[in-house]
Design a binder for these strands. Structure first.
Lengths: 114, 114
DNA sequence: TGAATATGTGAGCTCATGCTCATATGTTCA
DNA sequence: TGAACATATGAGCATGAGCTCACATATTCA
């Protein structure tokens, strides 16, 4: 048990619980390599479930399950066209999130070498 | 099994495996409410383990375990000062990631109501 | 309408993850 | 050095998450 206490931050300064949860949920949705691949794919072009599955070498069921997660977090948006449903990124924030994430990854790689 | 194939994206266009994994790992580290809270706290001020635990109402062990994850992803940086170890955000990308994440969350909340 | 196609979903299995508890490591100071 | 304090770590447990498989739903078109 620590007895230190240099507390210069008050609990009321912190993010509220709802924002913390929402933020964590969003990042959690992005925190899986299959979902990252799907998002990367639909960023390049609007794609239907079967095409995503083919492109990434996954079953359509697996893709559908993951798209459900991504839809739930409004990271992708579906558009029905006949029997098929085409998916695209829901908004541009995701692109920026990805870009920021990649910047961190590259920064990390540099620091790792340096 | 889908027979569609409107494939307008080639596998070689996609992010390479290493980047996908690194990106997913980074987001995964951000995808937990405890770690979000810790990052939010050390963003406000450089804090030692005991203070983080007090501030967030967690055991020091739990905090230490999570800091290990965050250190591993270079999201926080330790600085020893006597018996204590103070943590701060490792770089500014994390701040931007958080900001982008919050923007998405707010966008999502708006869309949810609208 | 009914067969064919495309996607969605639930159950169940396996593996990952976050916590607690006990203990180890590291640092200060008498 | 050794006691006290601060942090780290490993084992073990309970829960969560992603996949497969079977099946349900939805759309087209002959």
């Amino acid at each position: 048990m620590s007895m230190s206490s240099h507390i210069q931050v008050n609990k009321s300064d912190l993010l509220n619980d709802a924002s913390v949860e929402a933020l964590a949920e969003t990042f959690k949705a992005l925190g899986d390599s299959t979902r990252v691949r799907i998002l990367d794919a639909v960023f390049r072009a609007e794609l239907c479930v079967g095409d995503i599955a083919d492109l990434l070498g996954l079953t359509e069921s697996a893709v559908s399950h993951q798209l459900r997660v991504l839809r739930g977090m409004r990271l992708v948006r579906p558009r029905r066209a006949g029997q098929q449903i085409f998916y695209s990124l829901d908004d541009q924030h995701i692109v920026k999130l990805f870009a920021q994430g990649l910047e961190h990854v590259e920064e990390r790689a540099r620091a790792g070498r340096g």
